[in-house]
Design a protein around this nucleic acid. Structure first.
Length: 457
RNA sequence: GGCGCGGUAGCCAAGUGGUAAGGCCGAGGUCUGCAAAACCUCUAUGCGUCGGUUCAAUUCCGACCCGCGCCUCCA
């Protein structure tokens, strides 16, 4: 069964297929800007892309998928952060790249095959800008910046339908100042390919044919996808916010330079809402992975919760839904334990796979999964169950606090209670359980011992 | 103002022109010193409002109300 996915450009469901003779599917996913910890909205996008990657590998075989996801390690935000902290840009971006990798691993996202960083591809970006200047699609402004001339590309705006958009005075946009470099541009819609060095940039500048400076944001994806995947890629993805201007600009740069179609398929996932509103620090509803782990939730429950909504629909993330995810995983864990290892030939989980193949309908897939789980008369084996869990990227390892994380005072209480229980002194045992609960710990009795878990907040 | 999306049980959330998946919560039960876990049963005459089309609409059409996103560097 082949994966059908909505294409943002043609606005229809289309099957994903490799187009190159080598049969390798070329997949480019816009990655993070590494200047701070990623939040769960970022991770929704990366998890959705991880499921796409997994489905492609399931269908085509792991050797036939090439997944590239970039790291934006030079831009206004990374530079600003480095300047504020008095550290080098490389130091700051290294720190947040490592954190991003750790978070991805905790969320069970497969690492991309190539993870190119913008600062490691300055040469390629300069080459591409030079190509655009030479072809008349770009021009150097007086200050040494280079801009893409939007009017030189007839097809500009096809992805975002920008020609149908109008800016009307008296609206939210009217008060916004134009970019500081607006005066240098020939037209307000032109965008920077190369930004001339400014005092604020500190040491973060590279030599170029147009003078010292740094690449604009959009050019890195055009240059790096060209280098690592070729002139035409099979799938290009990102969050909905990237559709315009980022992806529109990438198309303009790549197609003007390369002279061939840039991406055969575009896919954009919708943003996450938290408690019904866009995440923002001022609303206090912006969560990082660490924020939620600190509240006692497991990374796998976070992944599950982020898959509970359709990727092309805004998902309202709440702590309640995270709790629901945690419980749902526990049920799956218990179900998994009842399954024989192998031996069932019929794949009862086919409806789950079918839902995923149908435009990545993860909530329908989870629904189908539980429908099967609830019908115990259906014969399933662990192998087929594991395959569908692998497609979703859900791991069922029991999250248990390790001994070392438990305060000794808590351990002592637990030991006393266990002794009281063995002595059948239930009054004392119950009193000690209450003390543990008050201290924020749950004591789970088993036949031959006990375990301690932090209570959920 | 332009472009686009959505309003389905207490919460999250699929879906279809033919009479509402699933998860959580809640209620009852089995089991267990207690607690937890596990398992079983139940839980929307209803799908924003009002019209229209139709034998039949939550699903199609229209109007309206409400919410959300994007509109030049936010996944």
């Amino acid at each position: 069964m082949a994966l059908r996915l909505f294409d943002s450009l043609s606005r229809e469901l289309r099957e994903l297929k490799p187009s190159h003779p080598d049969g390798i599917f070329r997949f480019y996913n816009c990655g993070p800007t590494v200047y701070a910890p990623a939040h769960i909205g970022n991770f929704r996008t990366f998890i959705i892309n991880d499921v796409i990657r997994r489905l492609l590998e399931l269908e085509l075989g792991p050797a036939h998928v090439r997944h590239v996801r970039n790291l934006t390690d030079v831009d206004d935000k990374t530079i600003k952060r480095a300047q504020e902290e008095g550290r080098s840009l490389a130091e700051v971006t290294r720190q947040w790249t490592d954190k991003f990798h750790a978070d991805c691993a905790a969320l069970n996202c497969l690492p991309p095959h190539v993870e190119p960083a913008a600062t490691a591809h300055i040469r390629e970006q300069i080459d591409m800008i030079a190509c655009l200047v030479e072809k008349g699609n770009a021009y150097r402004a007086a200050d040494g910046s280079v801009y893409f001339k939007v009017s030189s590309f007839d097809d500009y705006g096809r992805l975002s339908r920008v020609k149908e958009r109008q800016l009307d005075p008296g609206t939210s946009l009217a008060g916004k100042p134009q970019a500081a470099d607006a005066d240098e541009k020939e037209d307000a819609s032109d965008f920077a390919l190369w930004k001339a060095h400014k005092p604020d940039d500190g040491e973060n500048a590279w030599a170029s044919p147009w003078g010292r400076g740094r690449p604009g944001w959009h050019i890195e994806c055009s240059a790096m996808s060209k280098k690592h995947l070729g002139d035409t890629i099979d799938l290009h993805t990102g969050g909905e916010d990237l559709l315009f201007p980022h992806h529109e600009n990438e198309i303009a740069q790549s197609e003007c330079c390369n002279g061939v179609p840039f991406a055969r398929h575009w896919y954009h996932s919708k943003h996450l809402l938290v408690n019904g509103a866009k995440m923002s620090k001022s609303l206090g509803n912006l969560y990082t992975l660490d924020d939620l782990v600190a509240k006692g939730f497991s990374p796998m429950a976070i992944r599950y919760a982020l898959l509970m909504g359709h990727p092309r629909k805004q998902l309202n993330f709440t702590l309640d839904s995270l709790h629901a995810a945690e419980r749902a995983l526990a049920t799956l864990r218990a179900y998994r334990a009842t399954l024989p290892a192998t031996g069932i030939t019929e794949n009862v989980f086919a409806p789950v796979q079918a839902a995923l193949d149908d435009d990545l309908n993860t909530p329908a897939a989870l629904g189908a999964l539980f429908t099967i789980v609830n019908r115990r008369e259906l014969q399933a084996d662990a192998g087929s169950f594991d395959r569908v869990m692998t497609a979703l990227g859900l791991k069922l390892d029991a999250p248990v606090a390790t001994k070392s994380e438990i305060p000794t005072a808590i351990l002592a209480l637990a030991e006393k209670r266990w002794a009281a229980k063995l002595a059948k002194d239930y009054a004392t045992a119950d009193a000690l359980r209450k003390e543990l609960t008050a201290a924020g710990w749950s004591m789970l009795d088993r036949k031959d011992g006990y375990s301690l878990e932090p209570s959920k907040q």
